[in-house]
């Protein structure tokens, strides 16, 4: 049994023009000790998927479907049950460490408050584990750091503190929402290295959400690609990055700097981009939402929701055309 099994998750948000589905009929799993990457452009529903796991959807947001975590259904949890889950069993790291740490509370308070609440440990014990956590995430001088406020740290250090915060109650699942996006490139590498190390040292399941496939390539076991609230392709990281089958995945990979796998474009060193803009919430195209930007779209793409096509045990796509099936190599792309 996987740690997390999400089935037919649909998230509806209230917008200015009425309700709109931000996540549509999404199903995926995260195994014990597995790193799953979820990638897609902004507005593809990645963050809403994560927030629905924690029962933290924004004002007037609703989630339907089924979320099975560690053997129990949690989508129907009461507020209280959700609170007992959050921070303790499922922890989350947010995108921007400049805004996700409280500016007025000391690092000690922020590192220990949930530990003391969930585990009912004494102040001294909580302080002791806070010190250990800070050394784990490689904050120099943990003693002084406990007394400091977040404003006294750089972005990278703050993200390390946020990671320490998330790890405090030893959660089974860690959700990292764009953990490196707000950071400088050099600092990003440090955070990724830290996540690698945590993975080795602790039996942690992690869901990394990002729009940057480069971040996922070295970190995750599997990747799920999302577009307009739906899954378009899921596969083992190596399969998906080297032999993408969905036109959208193909486009995302071609848009990566230094990751181009097209012989011609690597000669000209030109960055490819996907034509057009990602659709806005509440305005998703019919059928396969990507058909408006897809070079391979046929009439059925516009009218019918794509069914999943299983390519191998671990690899599936949602594309009736499957334009790269004949040759599983890279030459078909243009």
């Amino acid at each position: 049994m996987d740690l997390l099994t999400v089935k037919n998750l649909t998230v509806t948000l209230a917008t200015g023009r009425g309700d709109a589905a931000a996540v549509r009929d999404l199903s995926f799993t995260v195994g014990h000790g597995e790193f799953l990457g979820i990638a897609g452009e902004s507005g593809s529903g990645k963050t809403m998927t994560a927030l629905s796991l924690l029962g933290l959807l924004p004002h007037k947001g609703r989630a339907t479907g089924s979320i099975n975590f560690d053997g129990r259904e949690i989508l129907t949890s009461s507020k209280r049950e959700y609170r007992d889950l959050r921070g303790k069993e499922i922890a989350m790291i947010f995108q921007d460490p400049m805004t996700s740490l409280h500016p007025m509370l000391t690092v000690e308070v922020q590192l220990t408050e949930h530990l003391r609440h969930h585990r009912k440990v004494s102040k001294d014990a909580a302080r002791q584990s806070a010190l250990e956590l800070l050394s784990t995430v490689k904050i120099p001088d943990p003693e002084a750091a406990l007394r400091a406020h977040p404003s006294q740290f750089s972005g990278g250090m703050r993200q390390r503190i946020a990671i320490a915060m998330a790890l405090a109650c030893e959660p089974k699942l860690l959700i990292a929402d764009e953990p490196t996006t707000a950071l400088d490139v050099t600092v990003q590498a440090g955070i990724l290295k830290l996540l690698h190390q945590l993975r080795k040292e602790r039996n942690l399941s992690v869901m990394v959400i990002t729009h940057d496939l480069g971040v996922l390539s070295s970190l995750t076991d599997r990747i799920m690609i999302m577009y307009a609230g739906s899954e378009v392709e899921t596969g083992l990281t190596s399969d998906l990055l080297q032999r993408p089958r969905h036109p959208y995945t193909k486009g995302l990979i071609a848009a990566l700097p230094g990751h181009t796998n097209d012989a011609k474009s690597s000669q000209t060193k030109r960055l490819l981009s996907i034509e057009g803009m990602p659709p806005e919430l509440g305005n998703f195209p019919s059928g396969c939402a990507f058909h408006t930007r897809c070079n391979y779209a046929i009439a059925a793409c516009k009218s019918e929701l794509p069914e999943s096509i299983q390519i191998s045990d671990s690899h599936r796509i949602f594309c009736p055309v499957d334009p790269f099936s004949a040759k599983a190599s890279i030459e078909g792309a243009k």
Partner: peptide
Amino acid sequence: GNDYVRAARAKGLPEITVIRRHVLRP
């Protein structure tokens, strides 16, 4: 509406603690 309030809720703190410690003070 701030990120740090969402972060506080993500830690599973009781709502009253979130309001008193994380919201009311700022």
